[in-house]
């Protein structure tokens, strides 16, 4: 029985390809050496950081999903912490008590979307709006008009009932 984890980490943006490959090798090796199984390792591309980390304004987001035990997480985090090109990481447990024999990796991979930007059919009720998102290089844009308008969460308040006369 293994657990399902994901680790999202940010890597320096200016690395040559072989360096990026090395990061991948180190990360996956850390997990597999502890009896873990790689589900997906994806480069989500460069994105401007919300704040500078170690003087870096822009960085590569890398997403790693795997089945493993807790020791693998400890080992992976140790490796990432030591690695100078990895700026930040975050690990989240996604599932517990998973039997690797019956686990469908193909199916699981389909549920991964960079930054949760899903290709959604545009909803009819809301007109397409070009958002202010600075976007991710090399990642699909969120289909506009899929969720809320600019004013976001507050907007369902005006839609209901239609009575009441505040100005």
């Amino acid at each position: 029985m293994l657990r399902k984890y994901e680790t999202l980490f940010i890597v320096r943006p200016d690395l040559p390809e072989e360096q990026m490959a090395k990061v991948k090798e180190r990360a996956t090796a850390a997990v597999t050496s502890q009896g873990g199984l790689e589900i997906a390792y994806q480069d989500w591309g460069k994105k401007k950081l919300a704040y500078p980390v170690k003087k870096v304004q822009k960085a590569n987001y890398v997403y790693f999903r795997y089945l493993a035990g807790g020791e693998a997480v400890a080992e992976l985090e140790r490796v990432l912490k030591v690695h100078d090109d990895v700026l930040r990481f975050i690990t989240v447990k996604l599932g517990d008590r998973i039997d690797p024999a019956t686990f469908d990796m193909e199916e699981d991979r389909k549920g991964i979307f960079p930054f949760n930007i899903k290709p959604r059919e545009p909803s009819a009720e809301r007109p397409a709006e070009e958002g202010d998102e600075e976007g991710v290089e090399g990642a699909p844009r969120r289909s506009s008009g899929s969720r809320w308008g600019e004013d976001g969460p507050a907007e369902n308040t005006s839609a209901d009932e239609g009575m009441g006369d505040e100005n």
């Binding site: 999202l8 980490f9 940010i10 994105k47 950081l49 919300a50 704040y51 980390v53 960085a59 700026l87 930040r88 990481f89 975050i90 989240v92 930054f115």
Partner: peptide, 13 residues
């Protein structure tokens, strides 16, 4: 708060 930790959102803009 988790998004802030990996610089997806600002702590303070």
């Amino acid at each position: 708060k988790m998004a802030r930790a990996i610089a997806l959102l600002p702590f303070q803009a």
